[in-house]
Design a protein around this nucleic acid. Sequence first.
DNA 1: TACTAAGCGAGACGGTACGTCCGGTCTTTTG
DNA 2: CAAAAGACCGGACGTACCGTCTCGCTTAGTA
Lengths: 211, 211, 211, 211
Amino acid sequence: MPHSASSPKGRPGRPRSAAADRAILDATRAALVDLGWGKLTMGDVAARAGVAKTTLYRRWANKNELVVDAVAVLFDELELPDLGCLQADIEGVVRQFGALLARPETKTALMAVVAESTTDDALRERIRSAIVDRQKRLVVLGRERAQQRGELPPDVPGPEGALAAARTAGLIFDLIAGAIVHRTLVTAEPVDAEWAHRLSTVLLQGLGGLD
Amino acid sequence: MPHSASSPKGRPGRPRSAAADRAILDATRAALVDLGWGKLTMGDVAARAGVAKTTLYRRWANKNELVVDAVAVLFDELELPDLGCLQADIEGVVRQFGALLARPETKTALMAVVAESTTDDALRERIRSAIVDRQKRLVVLGRERAQQRGELPPDVPGPEGALAAARTAGLIFDLIAGAIVHRTLVTAEPVDAEWAHRLSTVLLQGLGGLD
Amino acid sequence: MPHSASSPKGRPGRPRSAAADRAILDATRAALVDLGWGKLTMGDVAARAGVAKTTLYRRWANKNELVVDAVAVLFDELELPDLGCLQADIEGVVRQFGALLARPETKTALMAVVAESTTDDALRERIRSAIVDRQKRLVVLGRERAQQRGELPPDVPGPEGALAAARTAGLIFDLIAGAIVHRTLVTAEPVDAEWAHRLSTVLLQGLGGLD
Amino acid sequence: MPHSASSPKGRPGRPRSAAADRAILDATRAALVDLGWGKLTMGDVAARAGVAKTTLYRRWANKNELVVDAVAVLFDELELPDLGCLQADIEGVVRQFGALLARPETKTALMAVVAESTTDDALRERIRSAIVDRQKRLVVLGRERAQQRGELPPDVPGPEGALAAARTAGLIFDLIAGAIVHRTLVTAEPVDAEWAHRLSTVLLQGLGGLD
DNA sequence: TACTAAGCGAGACGGTACGTCCGGTCTTTTG
DNA sequence: CAAAAGACCGGACGTACCGTCTCGCTTAGTA
């Protein structure tokens, strides 16, 4: 998602190199792994990508924008495979997310980007739209599937029902994502099958208590 | 915790100024609030503290060490007030932690420090010992209190019982801290009384399901 | 004479700014007059030149190199005007050199640079090639003119004659330059017409005594 | 000549260590040889002397004062031995001065101190009184001896005679000292017996031509 | 086929902060 | 008191990046 002129067609002049785009994003992720956010430099990314610094700045306004774009795509690989029952589905996605965060590139990328966002509202917004909100779909999808299977009661109809559903989805998202992130980055212990099972057990059991 | 020579007594030469220590740490926290990690500069901290840059470097080897030390103390204020029942205790600590993270200084500090730690093992260890582990005591204490009240069954005696208890404490810590951090820093919505209540409800209900 | 890549043609990238070169050298001379070698700082020179400090360091490796280059050109203005007879020629060049060293920029520059060279062989070589050797031409030229006028006997032919001529030229150069420098910088009295006359008289008279 | 309190006797308190004085001056000369003026640091001198920096500053107000004092004594060893005739006397003192300046400590010291003086009038005055003027006695003494031997005519009596004598002495001093210094420090070739002989020849022959 | 507009590599540019070093002062304890 | 030790402030050092700029050259589409 480099910030280019809008009309991709018929613009005069030499077109941007798609290969450069790819090389830059790959180089950014590689540099992030090797160096972390703080030590990553635009010059180094350019050199890794075999590209001039100008080519970076023609596409992204600054380091933040570039890194967020380079990182966002990493989180798109999460899926909710249908494993037959809600608990299995939850465990599956927990393990997936845990595995994702176990990779140094994603770990570094996520934390760096979130940290930088604490004092940069525009960046925070970009992160939310590019990364976080795209994953909430997993919670919504899992809930729908469970309702179809009869494991969860259907939504209360009407606006207050929808509101309650949204609130619960938000809580679950914070719980799952937060627990995984905390275990990975702060506690620094692995998200293994056993831990995923215990987490999903607590969640399922606990959610019953929310009216 | 500046890295000073060990023997505080009878060393020859002019002793380090304790006032400078304090001024520097205060200035660091203030700068962190105003500027965030990335923009914070040693020169600025020195100027705020009314101190020469050399005085900073005499005490801390670099920015990371200084900021971690400046930040660590902020998390010591968390307590577990006895509110009569386990749910109230949990809600209380959740709200406390939420309020703590709502302050810009703590929010910025925590994330910055954690992010930096993803590529710096020494820093990660320093964080864990200086910040994280000191808060696990809250979970342990809450559990003991609830057992005394009869709200939770006593620990199974023997080593495997202790192990199970430790594992559960770890899960709870990740769940509570993770959810609060995630809500505050990623979802960017407040930890209010209502959310704290829902979280504690899920937790209490869910914990019953673990064996 | 900034230390740049050799080929001035067809090099890729933005070319060095010639205006910056000039501004820096001018600023260096000005700073040298105002502050002297010891107090001269690269930051100050950069500020006077309206240039970033990096631009200085891109061209010169350090203060010494910069100042020598800035100073060297000052000594190129010396000439040997044909005043009709040898004594007048000598007096002319003595007065010229005296006037040159009377200017604070040249005085400061020369001494500073020579002093620094006493412990820096590379610097000494740079000075000799950039400043000193270029002035020996005056002695050689004056001798040739006087021989054409018949005021001095022609060189003895053969290698030993050339050697003797070179030795004498060296002695004369040390005598003239040394006396002027010493009077200006150590004795700190002016090189006026009368002193120039007395010096040239001693020299002319004295040179007759060499074989 | 450290700037000490005036009364050396009966002062209360612990007396200054004379050993420290000597150690400091020796260390200063040594440091000057090793490092040159520019790189010489007070801390280094103190360390070499096995003395605290405070002890330096208690005796000398700053680097300049210390170095000039350390250097001045070096030039006191010049003498004018009576070799029987004027030319031999001159050659003798030329060789002596040449040998003196061949030593790195004197070479460095003299130039450094002179260079620093070009922008510091107080320092220049201190140098003149401590170093230069003390050597003019050699010229005056040589002249007197030659007059007693009948090699030079006696001074013209009266004030204008004295003035002329002083002027000539000044010229000779500038010529001799200047030529030696220039050859040693700029031309960077040795003052050997042959060169000394040629210099004295030119001088003696040339001086006959004055009035 | 030439023209034109933009992309591109290279690298200079003005800034800003880094972490180090030194000058000269101040504050301790020890003699 | 002096001396040794060393902390202190101030300020310059030379380096590293940032994000911008100016070159000469390449690569399209349009005339």
